[in-house]
Design a binder for these strands. Structure first.
Lengths: 137, 137
DNA sequence: ATAAAAATGGACTAAAATAGTCCGATTTAT
DNA sequence: ATAAATCGGACTATTTTAGTCCATTTTTAT
């Protein structure tokens, strides 16, 4: 699986926060609305916070909100925050792990595929996704 | 990881067999040349055999050779034989596993990405890879 | 002041997927 | 007969993924 559950959950959450604009939303609300185990979501939001995507408020009536403009957040960025660089094949992540990589005609293929996937994902931002969401209902 | 080890090994093996043309090659030779654990490779070749990509000869001097023309085998085919359909995200493999898929603006994205990746991989055949291999040395 | 409701941090665990191993049986060339 | 190969099935080890749990801290409403 290219996209891990935690990444999927992160993306859903950011989409939810995008729709809520500047409103502060707590973990349980997101968990409920997006069908995410709330304890797990806790960890995910912590990570997004550390990376400057969202901001948090502690204490009663606390919660989270989006720090950046939805248009300024792309999907690739979130994937990389949650699970590191897109991994197609071992050698495309770390060339040293493959004894063949220097004489292998597959290596360039994996690298090119990765580049293409990254380009495609970088083009998708959360403002777009939000619009599509409303279209879809 | 999109590409599992077994798939990578399968691809390497087919590339090797492509170069050997009609010569019969045994597991240990492939394992040695392509840095694959030979017991594991055994399983992989069995699968490729069942799917009609290679043919085997039992007994002394036995081994394997490519049944199809390298030009007629594409990478996507081998990936799907070894690990099933390209899996980007849970919902792009099995829609029923995601409660949101019907109202989710991400779902179409994953489907489209999958289609693009598949198209790209389908275009690459083993004759091409072989040529590139010789260029590279 | 106090209680309740929230995030925070760290350690831990369960389940699933991945990457193999091992061995006995069968087949075939010499 | 023997050696060298595939074949098939059961088994195992390791790693990754997907969480859980709990004690602590912070803040707010009352």
């Amino acid at each position: 699986m290219l996209i891990k559950r935690k990444t999927d959950y992160a993306i859903r959450s950011i989409l939810y926060l995008s729709q809520k604009k500047n409103k502060i939303v707590d973990v349980n609300e997101i968990a409920r609305e997006k069908f995410i185990p709330s304890n797990f979501l806790t960890k995910i939001l912590q990570r997004l916070k550390k990376k400057g995507i969202i901001k948090s408020f502690k204490g009663k009536n606390g919660g989270f909100y989006l720090l950046k403009n939805p248009r300024e957040i792309n999907i690739l960025e979130i994937i990389e925050i949650m699970q590191g660089p897109i991994s197609l094949n071992l050698c495309a992540v770390d060339k040293r792990k493959c004894k063949l990589s220097n004489v292998c005609s597959l290596h360039p293929l994996w690298l090119e595929m990765r580049k293409n996937i990254e380009r495609e994902l970088k083009r998708v931002n959360f403002y777009e996704l939000m619009k599509d969401y409303y279209k879809r209902r």
